[in-house]
Design a protein around this nucleic acid. Structure first.
Length: 408
RNA sequence: GUGGGCGUAGCUCAACCGGUUAGAGCGCUGGACUGUGGCUCCAGAGGUUGGGGGUUCGAGUCCCCUCGCCCACCCCA
C-alpha cells in the first residue's frame, strides 16, 4: 500500500485522545467565559489581506513573511487569518455591536512558519477581546480570567509576565534613544542584533548573547509618559491588592504593532523553546485606526495546542458498550433489531456489520472493551430469548429481557 | 529563511567494513477450542527500505537532489 496523499506540512489530524482534549478545552472555556460575561463569536477563516496589513502591522513578521495570502477568482487579495484580534474587532464594527462589549473565540489560525514543538501552521487559539474599557480594572479582569482558565484546565506550571509598552509616542522616543546610544556600538553586536537594529531595536535588549553590553541601557519603562505610567502603577497596585501572582518583565515587547500600555505573556517551563502558553495586551488606538470609534481595548489568546501539551490526559467516560454478536448470517436481522432497540433506550450498542466468525466477533467485543455481549443464534431465536454474557465475569444468562441487567 | 538530527512492515525498532532471499517484538488474520473474548502454543498475511538520480560486479548502508518528521535560531500562541 502506498498512500497517495499526505497532510501538508505543519497541519495535523486531531482524533482520539487529542480530540477529547481539544473539545474539553472548548467546553470548559465556555463555562469560564460565561461566568465573566464574554459571548463567543466565530468569524470567517479568511479576510481581506489589507485588514491584517493595517491592523496587525506592515512591519510585523506575521504580515511580512508568515501570512497565507491568495487571490480568489475575482482577483480579491485575501489572507487566512493569522490571528484573531483584527477579525473580531472588524466584526464588532461591521455589525454595529454596542461598545463596550466582551467577546471570546476559539478559532483556527494560519501562519507560514517552520513547524516546531508547540508550533504549527494551522493551530487553534482560545482568546478574548474586551472593547471600550479605559481604566486598568479591565486589565485586572482579563488577567484573572486567563488564570481562571488555566486553573480549570488543571494547568499548574505557568507564570504571568507583565510589562507596559507605553503609547506610540513613548515607543518612538525610546526607539530614538536606542538607535542613538547604539549607533557606534552596533557593529560589535551579534548578527541578530544588527538586523534588529534596523527592524525592531526593542528586541536588542532581549538578546542573550550581548547581555553584558546592554546592561547600562535604560528600559522602555523609563520612557513612559505620565498617563501610561499611571495606568501601569494602578494595575500593579490592583494586582498586589488582589494577590495575583506575576512577575514584571520589562523585556516583553510582543510582535504586534498595535499593543499599547499593558502587555503580558503566560509562560510555561514544561514547553520547549516556544514557551508561551499565551499572551495579550492593550490596543488603545486600534479601533480608531480601523475606522471605528476612539475606544480602547484589551485582549489575549492562548495557543490551544500548547495548552494540550502541558495538560494531563483526560479520561473520557463512555457509556458501557453492549456488543451484539450473531452466530451465522441467518441471525443477522435479529441482531440488527437488538442493536436498534438498545440504542432506542439511549444505550451504547454496536455489532459487526460484515459477517465474521463468532470468535472474531467476540474478540472485537473484547478489544472494544464491551461490558456486555448479546449472543444471538438459532437456539435463542427458537426460544425467543437472548444469551447475555458479562465480559468481566464470563457469566452467561439466558433471558427474554436483557434490559434489566443494563444498569443505566 | 538558517542550522542540526532522523525517515526500514499498521506501531516500536534490528540488519557488521557495501555482500546472497531485509528480520524481531507488538498488532492483525486463522488454527489448537467445529456456538464464545482475555492467557498459552502454532501458522499465515503484511515491504518499491519516503521519492528521484548517481557511484559500484553488488546500495537499506556511500554521494547529490527532493519531500516529510523532530529539535533549535528568527519570531510567535
Amino acid at each position: 500500500m502506498s498512500i497517495k496523499f499526505k497532510k501538508i506540512r505543519g497541519t495535523r489530524d486531531i482524533y482520539g485522545e487529542e480530540f477529547e482534549k481539544l473539545f474539553f478545552i472548548f467546553e470548559k472555556s465556555r463555562e469560564i467565559f460565561s461566568k465573566y460575561g464574554y459571548d463567543f463569536i466565530l468569524t470567517p477563516a479568511f479576510e481581506s489581506k489589507e485588514l491584517f496589513e493595517k491592523s496587525t502591522g506592515e512591519t510585523t513578521d506575521i504580515v511580512q513573511k508568515e501570512m497565507y495570502v491568495f487571490e480568489d477568482l475575482s482577483g480579491r487579495k485575501l489572507a487566512l487569518r493569522p490571528e484573531g484580534t483584527p477579525p473580531v474587532l472588524r466584526a464588532i464594527l461591521e455589525n454595529n455591536i454596542e461598545i463596550p462589549c466582551k467577546f471570546a473565540y476559539f478559532m483556527n489560525m494560519f501562519r507560514y512558519e517552520r513547524p516546531q514543538k508547540g508550533r504549527y501552521r494551522e493551530f487553534f487559539q482560545l482568546g478574548a477581546e474586551a472593547v471600550g474599557f479605559k481604566e486598568p480594572y479591565i486589565d485586572l479582569e482579563v488577567l484573572l480570567l486567563a488564570e481562571d482558565l488555566l486553573k480549570n484546565l488543571g494547568i499548574k506550571d505557568y507564570r504571568f509576565e507583565i510589562n507596559s509598552v507605553g503609547c506610540i509616542s513613548d515607543r518612538e522616543k525610546y526607539s530614538k534613544y536606542l538607535r542613538n546610544i547604539l549607533k557606534d556600538k552596533i557593529n560589535n553586536f551579534c548578527e541578530n542584533c544588527k538586523r534588529r537594529y534596523e527592524r525592531n531595536p526593542f528586541r536588542i535588549i532581549d538578546c542573550k548573547i550581548d547581555k553584558a553590553k546592554i546592561r547600562e541601557i535604560k528600559s522602555l519603562m523609563d520612557f513612559l509618559c505620565d498617563d501610561c505610567r499611571r495606568h501601569h502603577e494602578i494595575l500593579i497596585n490592583l494586582l498586589e491588592k488582589e494577590n495575583f501572582k506575576y512577575v514584571e518583565n520589562p523585556l516583553i515587547v510582543r510582535g504586534l504593532d498595535y499593543y499599547t500600555r499593558t502587555a503580558f505573556e503566560i509562560i510555561s517551563d514544561r514547553l520547549g523553546a516556544q514557551d508561551a502558553l499565551g499572551g495579550g495586551g492593550r490596543y488603545d488606538f486600534l479601533l480608531k485606526d480601523m475606522g471605528g470609534p476612539d475606544s480602547p481595548g484589551i485582549g489575549f489568546a492562548f495557543g490551544v495546542e500548547r495548552l494540550m501539551l502541558v495538560m494531563e490526559d483526560i479520561k473520557k467516560k463512555d457509556k458501557a458498550l453492549i456488543y451484539v454478536v450473531y452466530v451465522t448470517e441467518k441471525e443477522k436481522d435479529e441482531a440488527i433489531k437488538w442493536v436498534r432497540k438498545i440504542r432506542e433506550n439511549n444505550l451504547y450498542a454496536d455489532m459487526e456489520w460484515d459477517y465474521r466468525s463468532l470468535k472474531s466477533q467476540m474478540r472485537k467485543a473484547n478489544n472494544k472493551g464491551a461490558k456486555w455481549v448479546l449472543i444471538i443464534g438459532e437456539e435463542e431465536i427458537k426460544r425467543e430469548k437472548v444469551k447475555l454474557k458479562n465480559m468481566e465475569t464470563g457469566e452467561e444468562i439466558l433471558t427474554d429481557n436483557p434490559f434489566k441487567f443494563f444498569e443505566k
